[in-house]
Amino acid sequence: MTGGALAGVRVVDVSRVLAGPYCAQLLGDHGADVVKVEPVTGDLTRSWGPSRPDGVSAYYAGLNRNKRHLAADLGTSEGRELMLELLADADVLVENFKPGAMTRWGLAPDMLAERLPRLVHCRISAFDPDGPMAGLPGYDAVIQAYTGIMDLNGEPGGPPLRIPMPVVDLTTGLLALSGVLLALHEREESGKGQRVDISLVDGAMSLLHPAAANYFMTGAPPHRLGSAHPNIAPCETFPSPAGEVYVAAGSDRQFAELVSFLGAPELADDPQFRRNADRLAHRHELNAVLARLIAALDPDVDLARTLIAEGVPATLVRSLPQVLDAEDVAARGMVTELDGLRMLGVPVRLSRTPGSIRTPPRPLGADQVAGG
């Protein structure tokens, strides 16, 4: 196996919490040499949730593998000199400090760009760093509320709900990764680095499909639909003898295959249900019929495998332990173990230069401490 697609790329990660560390971890998964520089007090996530005796929490562990671990007080001369030393031969800097912090430490972005013209500087912020909300802190759940995601999530008539995974931070990390890779690719032609700017608000806004597209076209504000889909029917959860089952018959063909499987093929020709637009207009009538048919299914039938084999996207709603112990997940290596620590695997698979998990997350300052 080679060193990965990004072997030879050097990354300095001085970001904290989630989006930045996730971006840097993904770079490390594919072979980049990533140095994580934490405050001497440690990344805030080291104290979030269950932890090992060495100070590695479960939350921290999920975002900081495949990195070297340094600690530095960037407000000291020792910390500044360490940063300049690391950046001298770095390709990428990932940071998420408030505007002005880098300048106070003698590491102003313009100075770095002049001194290190090939550096790709990835700056992650909560809001537009040059806008009216510049410098204000933001966390995933707050941004979910601020950008309307939380208002869209929940049961009809119920209160808005936070999506339990930090989707804003994770999406922002993925967008930051794509920006870094774009800038590295362009540097091959120009020989010059550039700044990559991404905010949590931008990341959240990119998730507003199809709600935003529907609103732009109709002017009608969306309403909470629970597990249903605003543009497709049927596309929601129904109770079955084996547990809750999610059905997503997104096309007329899939709907015909679904009702045929359920023993009611005539529903595909019913004028109320023949086309997706018809099914949306008669969603409540359709759901009542499907609920009755699905409730009568044989509880011993493997609904996920059977329905998907019939061409209908559907599955029993599985619990997290069921997913993490599933045969297909294990076969893909999406749950793996290193030094006794279970973790999620590398989701992007390359045929010649695959990513890998080489080093586990480590204690604070395991490789070096400066200025603390």
Rank of each mutant, 00 (worst) to 15 (best):
C23E: 13
M343N: 04
R118E: 06
D302P: 10
E85R: 15
V17D: 07
D13H: 03
S240A: 15
I124E: 05
G154H: 05
A126N: 08
L286Q: 06
R65S: 06
I232F: 05
G355E: 04
R349E: 15
M205C: 14
M334Q: 13
N64S: 15
V329A: 06
A24L: 12
P99I: 02
G355R: 02
D269R: 06
S178Q: 15
E38D: 13
E114L: 09
H282Y: 03
S251Y: 09
L262N: 00
G173T: 05
E310T: 10
V301Q: 03
R305T: 14
S178C: 13
L84H: 12
T336I: 07
A296V: 06
A126R: 10
A145V: 02
D278V: 07
T359V: 13
L208R: 08
L174E: 13
A108P: 13
R187F: 00
G179R: 08
V369P: 09
E337P: 00
N214L: 14
N64Y: 14
T103C: 05
Q368G: 13
D367Q: 03
A248V: 10
G138L: 02
G372P: 09
S199N: 09
G75M: 08
D13Y: 02
D169T: 05
R68I: 01
A212W: 11
T306A: 04
F238A: 11
F261Y: 14
V196A: 12
M150W: 00
S178Y: 15
V247C: 00
K98H: 08
L174A: 14
G106K: 12
V12I: 11
L74V: 08
G3Y: 04
L344W: 08
M165H: 02
V35Q: 12
A183H: 15
V17R: 13
R318M: 08
L181F: 06
P234G: 11
V167N: 06
S15Y: 11
V56K: 12
H209D: 09
L344P: 05
A134I: 03
L177V: 10
A134G: 08
F97N: 12
L208H: 13
N153G: 06
E186P: 00
A126H: 01
A61L: 11
W48Y: 15
A304P: 07
R80W: 01
A32K: 14
G135T: 01
Y59L: 07
